[in-house]
Structures are given as C-alpha cells and as structure tokens.
C-alpha cells in the first residue's frame, strides 16, 4: 500500500533522511519511534508531500506521490492523491473560523462534490464514532485538546482515505486527555485502516502496531514486530533509546 524507496532529504547542510526504505501493507499499522531530530516526522510529512524530497520515491498503491511533474500538472496530481491520505497533526490545525460540522464537511463537499445532506449525515456518524456527537455546532476554541484532536481525526476520515498518517498526535495533549485519542485510534486499527503512526508512546505502540521502526539520525536503525523490538532490541542504539524511555 505505502512504499518508501530510497528517500533522501536535507535541510541546508543538515541531512535529515539518509536513504529510507520501508513498506506498509494494506490494513497494517506501522509505528515509527525515535529521538527528536531522527527525521521521523519529516518522513511522515514527506509521504503526503508536505516536505519535498531530494531523492527517492514514495508510492501509494500504484501511484507515485512525488511524481516528477511540473507546475499545474503536479498540483492537480498532488491534490488528488492527498484525498487518499488522511493526516492528523500534533497541533490539531482545526479551522477556527468554522464549526466542528463545517470543519468536517468542507472538504467532501468542495472536493468530492458531496451533497450537503449526505456530507452532514456522514459527519454525524464520524462524530459519533469519536464520541463527540453533541459538539456538532461548537467552534474549535470551545473544545478541549483531546476533543479537538478527535475532531481532527474525524475531519481526516471524512474524505474516506486509504491510509491515515498520525504525526505525534498526543504530544501536545495534557496526560489525562491522551486516552480518549488513543481509544479512537485503536478503533480505527480494529477496522483495519492502514496507519502510519509517529509517536513517543511506547505502550500504545506495543498495543496497536503490526510493525515498529526505530529511527535515529536519519536512518532506520531497526525494524520488527513490537514485541520483539521493544523488549529484545538487537541494535545497541535501539537499546540505549529504549533504556532512556523506560527509566
């Protein structure tokens, strides 16, 4: 489903991604862990082209995300392919000038030309799924962090994406609000949504991941099923990182 082939990225003199290769099959969940500056967020953002790459390819099913097209053609292509990917951000990025309902229905109505009644009905279903059915007409400013993030997830799901990308979605939340977001993500996992998750939460990773990747200094240091990687890492770098985390 998602293929990352030999990807390189530098910011000025700093090489952030040094030849990353990975693959996520349909319905599988990949969790990426690692220290700050390891490039994991950059990698995730590169998958839906919020960061450009210096070299390498990114494929979603049979379509190459970073196709070498120019100008208007590329714009059309990237807008289309982004509809197949749902992204949830660390700082939510809800649209403050729109209600929760409007946040969720705007994209489907505008891009997929869904009728308002249909879009609103789907939105209500999604809000029920994330346990926010009663917040339909609220503005983001009136919601807690955890509620905002759940709305953000619903907004991404409204476009019926093939894959969901989660960029440290609980890092900006107060501890007691993390649980409600994790609950929603677990629900999605049970429905076999293909997910790529960048996170600091090891326990959550252990629970949902089919595969875990440990990144440091722009390279994949180790890869494997959560049980193995988190409890019996083979690489020394991984061991050092996990030792710090589990202290």
């Amino acid at each position: 489903m998602v293929k990352v082939i030999n990807v390189y990225k530098r910011f000025g003199d700093n090489e952030v991604l040094k030849g990353i290769n990975l693959e996520v099959l349909r319905g599988k969940i990949l969790v990426i862990i690692g220290p700050s500056g390891s490039g994991k967020s950059t990698l995730l953002r590169a998958i839906n082209h919020l960061e450009t790459l210096d070299d390498g390819e990114i494929w979603i099913e049979k379509v190459q995300v970073n196709r070498p097209l120019k100008g208007r053609k590329f714009e059309k292509h990237i807008n289309r392919i982004r509809q197949d990917m749902g992204m949830v951000f660390q700082h939510f990025n809800l649209f403050p000038h729109m209600t929760v309902m409007e946040n969720i229905t705007m994209a489907p109505m505008l891009l997929k030309k869904t009728a308002r009644s249909e879009a609103e009905a789907s939105a209500r279903q999604l809000l029920a799924k994330v346990d926010l059915a009663d917040k339909v007409n609220f503005y983001p400013a009136q919601l807690s962090g955890g509620q905002k993030q759940r709305v953000a997830i619903a907004r991404a799901l409204a476009m019926e994406p093939k894959v969901m990308l989660f960029d440290e979605v609980t890092s900006a939340l107060d501890p007691e609000l993390i649980g409600e977001v994790n609950k929603v993500m677990k629900k999605l996992a049970e429905e076999h949504m293909t997910m790529l998750i960048v996170t600091h939460e090891m326990r959550f990773a252990a629970e949902v991941a089919d595969n875990v990747i440990f990144m440091a200094d722009g390279v994949i240091v180790e890869e494997g099923p959560p049980r193995r990687l988190l409890h019996n890492p083979t690489q020394e770098r991984t061991q050092r990182f996990l030792a710090e985390v589990f202290k």
Binding site: N79, R80, I81, R82, M85, M87, F95, A156
Partner: peptide
Amino acid sequence: VERGQHEASRSLGLSRAQ
C-alpha cells in the same frame, strides 16, 4: 495565519487556491 492551517487544508486535498 499559522502554517498548520495551510498544511491541514492541503493535506485534505484542497488546491492552493481553494
């Protein structure tokens, strides 16, 4: 306007103009 707003709307598939 926060960069995140731009990223969020682009990641939903909206064009630059939209």
